[in-house]
Design a protein around this nucleic acid. Structure first.
Lengths: 215, 215
DNA sequence: GTCTATACTAGGATAGAC
DNA sequence: GTCTATCCTAGTATAGAC
């Protein structure tokens, strides 16, 4: 997708190899879960063997972490940044919600793995180095959620959104959206318009519950 | 909790032993995930060894399945049944939503394991017998979701709910509610009232988005 | 960079004593 | 019913050839 952007970067060769491994890992984890996925499975998706995987990543846990980090990056870049634009809060929020919904579908492997949680699979069994990475990821996620909290707070201040428990509502909102990764599977011949329709339907519902009634 | 109800049943001894193992398994799976949980871990929570666990369950997968089945039973019994009562659809729906939210908190170990999914962990590696059980569980879940679909459809017919894509909205609704198992952790000294407040806040938001505007 | 060994361990499952 | 002892496979990670 953003291949052309990186193509001029120079260090493409190494980065591409690594990215390919990461992509394969995301797909494997999505399908079977963390522990049920073997390094052989990941290599298999690449038409390669373990050696390749271990050349780029020193452990399975590191691979897993990187899938999470990448998905957080996608979210921040795709939806989080909208929070900082200059527009009415409710408009921004609506576009953030729609963008997040679409991200869940278009980047399903990464997003599904991320949604199912880090803590779940690596409780305890981490090295200090990995612990640090884990903390970074949690911070990224918190920062992302905070964007939603901020925009909704602004919407309340602007009078477009009724007063409510912002933190609780953000949890509900993101839960509804993240849940997409649980039920969504791309269908044969599905178009962008199909996905847009699903995202719109959800967005309408979730935004509607926030509006200050003015009908 | 429902100890006294079963106390007169007679076959209590065997059932209780089994239930204790199941409870321990739910807690273990919740904490570490399916694959990262060893049978020794489950036994450890009971202050016992493998032997006890294998006496009641023939495999780890069977244990996992039973956690799912139990959580589905809790949902149907606690929230699903409300769908069949005799009252305006929107009233029933509101109570179903609140009940489901509370179930997520009060039965967290079972519910969290269930939410994180069956397919995820046991893709492929199942015996025919287990495959059958798996299908039963999926059917239970579908039947439960259908209750929500039905009630919302009735609400639309009654004119209390605006016309919308019912299936999509149910996915959003249950996603927001199931997500509770991801962020919720019981806090020291937390009361029923605290949990009720959280459930109410979410319920208000999620029901609000469905209402036909009549302000 | 990528492969083919191979070492090493964790953990599911079973047999049989008590 | 519950335990201990044991078998056995799967799968992470590494070493070293190519």
């Amino acid at each position: 997708m953003d291949r052309s952007a990186r193509a001029e970067a120079g260090e493409d060769d190494k980065a591409d190899g690594r990215a390919a491994v990461l992509e394969a890992a995301a797909r494997a984890f999505m399908q079977d879960g963390y522990a049920a996925t073997s390094i052989d499975d990941v290599a298999g998706l690449l038409g390669a063997t373990k050696g390749r995987v271990y050349y780029y990543y020193r452990s399975k846990a590191d691979l897993f972490f990187d899938v999470h980090r990448e998905s957080m990056r996608q979210n921040m870049e795709g939806a989080g940044r909208i929070a900082l634009e200059d527009a009415p809060a409710l408009d921004r929020l609506e576009r953030m919600v729609r963008a997040h919904a679409l991200l869940m579908m278009t980047h399903l492997p990464f997003q599904r793995v991320s949604v199912l949680g880090v803590e779940m699979h690596l409780a305890g069994s981490t090295t200090p180095r990995q612990r640090k990475t884990l903390n970074e990821i949690v911070e990224l996620r918190d920062a992302y959620e905070q964007r939603f909290v901020d925009v909704i707070s602004q919407g309340i201040a602007e009078g477009a959104i009724r007063p409510l428990d912002v933190k609780m509502v953000v949890r509900g909102l993101l839960g509804a959206l993240n849940w997409i990764t649980v039920w969504y599977r791309p269908r044969e011949g599905e178009t962008d318009a199909d996905r847009a329709r699903m995202a719109d339907e959800l967005t309408t519902y979730l935004i509607n519950g926030l509006r200050r009634d003015e009908a």
